[in-house]
């Protein structure tokens, strides 16, 4: 039986969270989460690309021959990323400057191609949109959480709001990204295992 629309939307946020559960899109996750603000900007830009590419791929899914579906999806995704890049450059210049190279790199974020292949190419337009939106919001929430943890531990602030004088610089450097991501992934998986145990016991 097909999942309800609400479940399609919330799957990406909790049950199939792309970062902590599916462990996808690690490159932008590790690179852009040096602060909560960067994580939010990157997450929202990715959400926009995910939702729009899912809609488009779902619309054209019956016209694209199987053999060229991957290059076609990449052309569609790259076009949306270029569009977002240009729009951010023109209308939110400061954030565009901060995120720099990471915006064009959304093209190679495997979450987007993964959802196109696994969901949008097999489902209707509205459900694909909800899937893209849910996955994007899950990705954004994860980046903001990871960025907040790293910014707080590394710089004593969250969203540039000063909270503490304790600064562990390693947390905003690459090793800190791996440490924080590992800790958070372990925590969320522990919660998932803990929740699934009573259900299994009930069966």
């Amino acid at each position: 039986m097909a999942e309800s629309k609400f479940k399609v939307l919330t799957n990406g946020i909790f049950k199939q969270n792309p970062i902590f559960i599916q462990v996808l899109g690690m490159c932008p996750t590790l690179a852009t989460t040096t602060s909560a603000e960067n994580g939010l900007g990157m997450g929202l830009a990715t959400t926009a690309v995910l939702a729009m590419s899912n809609i488009t791929i779902s619309l054209v899914r019956n016209f694209i021959p199987d053999k060229i579906r991957i290059p076609s999806y990449i052309v569609i995704i790259a076009s949306f990323v270029t569009m977002i890049d240009m729009l951010m450059h023109g209308f939110i210049y400061d954030l565009w400057k901060t995120l720099g190279l990471f915006i064009p790199l959304i093209v190679v974020n495997c979450i987007i191609l993964g959802r196109a292949e696994a969901f949008a190419s097999k489902n209707g337009v509205f459900r694909s949109f909800l899937d893209g939106l849910g996955m994007g919001l899950g990705f954004t929430a994860s980046l903001v959480l990871l960025g907040s943890v790293r910014e707080f531990l590394g710089n004593g602030s969250i969203f540039n709001y000063h909270l503490s004088d304790v600064k562990m610089f390693a947390m905003i450097l690459p090793p800190g990204a791996f440490i924080a991501l590992g800790m958070l992934a372990a925590f969320f998986n522990y919660l998932g295992i803990k929740r699934s145990k009573p259900k299994k016991a009930a069966k």
Partner: peptide, 24 residues
Amino acid sequence: TLMVITIIAALVLSVVYTVVKEPI
């Protein structure tokens, strides 16, 4: 098919570029 997709993508991008050229 691939050519049509790339042509449509290029057209859409050129329209967006024309719109954002001035704001950029």
